[in-house]
Design a protein around this nucleic acid. Structure first.
Lengths: 161, 161
DNA sequence: CTCAAATGGTGGAAAAGTCAACGATCAAGT
DNA sequence: ACTTGATCGTTGACTTTTCCACCATTTGAG
């Protein structure tokens, strides 16, 4: 088989390829988003999660957007300052907030949403439905497998030097 | 079909899921690498590219490792300072350098390489060979599709506000 | 040879992301 | 009611990543 290469074929390197892919996607998103407003990627994600009614309370939005606690706090402050969201106290849990989008955010979402949907379609355009399904499943599986960190074929040996 | 959700099902979101996956993989790699030495991810990639004889001249290594120009310069300086690589002038192009690994780097690679290979296998362990093939193809295709930034369903209309 | 355009590497600035500590709030048990 | 432990959001320091302007070198055209 063509696996004669040391280890660098195409098969190996999955994390590297994912990183490359992520980089490309991120750059693409950045350019697109920049054309339509003054929000960055993280901020847009927050807006989108709320606009699609995926979540409205702060923690739920944060996890859905996949953001760090600190970063979320900062981005949310920016969004509020720019007039994209209004923050209400949460009746059920006084520690949290409830996010409400302003008209400005809704307009931005109405303009940008379709473009991002088009992008999404463009991205998977070359894949069949079955392939998309496989990819989706694989992402999930690999993400789960990525939690293990103790491989330890050979335990670290500090006195090797 | 089950596509009743606004847009947020599983199918959409690919960039987001890739981002999450990348984050998980990156964190995993970070932990593993940290156990075996004092190199970070980018530095390790450089070492690996050279160790596997994928490239030796600076620009080739940089692109193979998928690093930013500036970051590569800095990481390379660190590698040199730590005694992992020796930088020679490039005879064919005086702007570039030729990278040579030190024994230290080779030892590090000999120790860490197998662990990362094991990790790689673990990551794709749940996927069949065909599925791996699909994933590989998909990554390539999506990455290619990610270069397009001009979707412009509707051109930006500044006077919408 | 000379010039202009393109490419490579460096360094600094700005942005993004990470992390830990802190006070406020909640939940659960007593 | 009270206490303990957990969760939540904020803040500030810190690291990492990204971007851009600059100079040196190369390449190709005249």
């Amino acid at each position: 088989m063509a696996k004669s290469e040391s280890a660098i074929d195409l098969g190996l390197h999955l994390p590297f390829q994912i990183a490359q892919l992520h980089s490309a996607l991120s750059a693409q998103a950045k350019v697109i988003i920049a054309q339509y407003g003054d929000l960055n990627l993280a901020q847009w994600r927050i807006v989108r999660v709320v606009a699609l009614d995926i979540a409205h309370s702060s923690t739920a939005v944060r996890t859905a957007a996949g953001l760090d606690k600190g970063q979320f706090s900062k981005m949310l402050a920016v969004l509020e300052a720019k007039g994209y969201v209004v923050v209400h106290p949460c009746p059920e849990d006084k520690r949290q907030h409830v996010l409400e989008l302003t008209d400005r955010a809704r307009r931005a979402h109405d303009r940008l949403g379709p473009v991002l949907d088009a992008r999404q379609q463009h991205l998977v355009a070359t894949l069949t439905t079955e392939e998309q399904e496989v990819v989706r499943k694989a992402i999930k599986a690999i993400a789960a497998a990525a939690t293990k960190t103790d491989f330890d074929i050979t335990p670290p040996e500090p006195e090797d030097t």
